[in-house]
């Protein structure tokens, strides 16, 4: 202990304390603060970068998911449109067929009616012509043969019979 006390030098103690305190303050200002700030800043930036990367990864994932959803939707849409188109086509064909059939029916009906009418007209015409022809014939016959009474009566009877058959 005596030796320790004897070794103790006031001057050295004084200088050590003075220089060390100055060193603390000078280093604090010129070294430790800038160094620790830089280290903190770097750690912060690394952390931020990692977080940003994580965020980007998540975003990417969600983007991919939504892409897939969109793709799926598009596929469904396409399917739907195609189906609609097919349906439309079938419907149009069916409608066209229906319309055509109706038209054809109508044409047939009117053709039938026309034919009937023509036929009636033709029959009438024929009847008329037959009548006038008969009259003509009758006139002629009458003109020549009506001199004989029996012949007249036979003639008339024959004609009437013919007409009846018509």
């Amino acid at each position: 202990m005596d030796k320790l006390i004897n070794d103790f030098s006031i001057g050295l103690f004084f200088w050590q304390s003075l220089v060390f305190l100055l060193l603390i303050f000078v280093l604090k200002k010129y070294a430790w603060k800038p160094i620790l700030n830089a280290v903190n800043e770097r750690e912060q930036s690394i952390e931020d970068a990692l977080k940003a990367a994580e965020k980007a990864r998540l975003e990417m994932e969600s983007l991919q998911e939504s892409n897939e959803a969109i793709l799926k939707e598009a596929r469904e849409e396409r399917e739907r449109i195609l189906k609609e188109a097919r349906d439309m086509k079938n419907k149009m064909i069916a409608e066209a067929k229906d319309a055509a059939a109706t038209e054809a029916d109508k044409a047939i009906v009117s053709a039938k009616a026309a034919i009937e009418a023509e036929k009636t007209a033709a029959i009438d015409e024929l009847k008329n012509q037959a009548a006038s022809l008969s009259i003509d014939v009758a006139e002629k016959i009458l003109g020549q043969e009506l001199s004989a009474e029996n012949k007249q009566t036979a003639m008339i009877g024959k004609i009437i019979e013919d007409v009846k058959f018509n």
């Binding site: 320790l4 070794d7 103790f8 030098s9 006031i10 050295l12 103690f13 050590q16 304390s17 060390f20």
Partner: peptide, 9 residues
């Protein structure tokens, strides 16, 4: 290794 220095610290 000097006592005055370590005492100061």
């Amino acid at each position: 290794g000097n006592i005055a220095v370590t005492v100061s610290l």
